[in-house]
Design a protein around this nucleic acid. Structure first.
Ligand SMILES: [Mn+2]
Ligand SMILES: [Mn+2]
Ligand SMILES: [Mn+2]
Ligand SMILES: [Mn+2]
Lengths: 220, 220
DNA sequence: TACAAATATTAGACATGTCTAATAAATCGA
DNA sequence: TCGATTTATTAGACATGTCTAATATTTGTA
């Protein structure tokens, strides 16, 4: 059995490798709110246990065994988030910390019956795909909103969940998963963009925001 | 924040004090599957933190602070068990271990919304009362089945949950919370009793079983 | 009531996860 | 390309929870 800390490290490696091909010590320390030296210790141990490969000074990557475990953790995290929002009435900005705990409860039966109870959802409240019990994720072609250009029309499909401030900002602007935006202009100076939702007046989004939104193109 | 182990010790003290007025080191060690020396260490620490009073060689009792915490843990444990049985379709013999983990998830909001979602249940799947958010438990006059005598008619109101073998035996005999039994005879030799359910043929229950059933008298 | 058995505590050890400080390596920028 | 900055590792420390073995106390019984 792995500890909560070990599981959190494996999941963090998974996420950072997704984003940047390698997981580096400092980024792991930041994400896990711990110190770089603690991360190095943990990477060494997890490498010995066969969950990842650690190249000192050059970051870490999961092995197949680590990958499988990370996908189960992601599955559990996202199913619990879905439960909290859909059944218990949590806001999408209130679920992350609780799911961060619930994901470590160890019971195959629990997670599979929760999955069935929720109707085998494919996406969590932030639009992120939920791996099935075999760890398979439905592939999607999405990109970050901040790489879109004026003239594009896009649909928001996912939002980075970790910053609840962002989620509340989106609530305030009336944006959510599925919202459609026409991009009117992108300002070179600060990367901000003027966007117009389907029904409503145009407004501006900072690059800080657009960087954390995943979108797909739609026919305008 | 308390650790899982600290919380489990406090809860175990609570249960043993209920049953026998004091919680002794050996009983705690047996219940928690640990060693007496580890329990002594933990009692010392929890006494320092103000959760209990420890009289060396004469057992432990919770303080008001410890009592309040134990009741919250019991509340969480029983609400989760109720959720698992009522919503996820677990059997009453399958929930204990999972609830033993879930009870340590720390979130006021989670437990209160779970409570509301379940309709503020008063009893868990084993018939045990669920404390409300203030730790209050509805009082009941119940006694163990093994102190009943021939001629009594009783209703089963609760079952000791920790032994899943017992729960499966009750399933096999068709007994559950609410079942009514007429006690026909109690055998002095082994304490076994012959009982007859409302609709069905009489059968015999060993003292091992009757000792773990809580009943209330009913007019026959 | 004395001694054996049961129970409890203390002493000493070890594994785990975390930290700070010291040192080392890699990377960035003039 | 070299020195400064950033990133990473190692060394050493400490808190926590657990264990076994030794010792102490209480309890039960002859
Ligand atoms: Mn977590
Ligand atoms: Mn999410
Ligand atoms: Mn527990
Ligand atoms: Mn129960």
């Amino acid at each position: 059995m792995l500890t909560r800390s070990e599981e959190d490290h494996i999941k963090a490696v998974y996420v950072l490798v997704q984003e940047g091909d390698k997981a580096f010590t400092k980024d792991l320390a930041d994400r896990l709110r711990t110190k770089a030296s603690s991360v190095t210790d943990m990477l060494k141990k997890l490498a010995e246990k066969g969950y990842l490969k650690h190249e000192p000074y050059y970051g870490a990557k999961l092995t197949a065994k680590g990958q499988a475990l990370a996908l189960q953790l992601v599955r559990k995290h996202r199913l619990w988030e879905t439960f909290l929002v859909e059944r218990l009435g949590f806001g999408w900005d209130e679920v992350h910390e609780v799911a961060e705990q619930l994901e470590h409860v160890a019971s195959e039966q629990l997670i599979n019956q929760l999955d069935a109870y929720l109707g085998h959802p494919a996406f969590d409240p932030h639009g992120d795909p939920i791996p099935d019990r075999n760890g398979r994720i439905r592939a999607r072609r999405t990109r970050r909103l901040d790489v879109s250009v004026a003239g594009d029309t896009v649909r928001i499909v996912a939002v980075s969940e970790t910053t609840d401030g962002l989620l509340r900002l989106l609530d305030a602007k009336g944006l959510r998963i599925g919202s459609t935006l026409a991009i009117q202009e992108v300002h070179a100076f600060d990367g901000s963009m003027d966007v117009k939702p389907k029904n409503g007046a145009a407004f501006s989004l900072s690059k800080d925001v657009s960087h954390h939104l995943q979108v797909e193109s739609i026919q305008p």
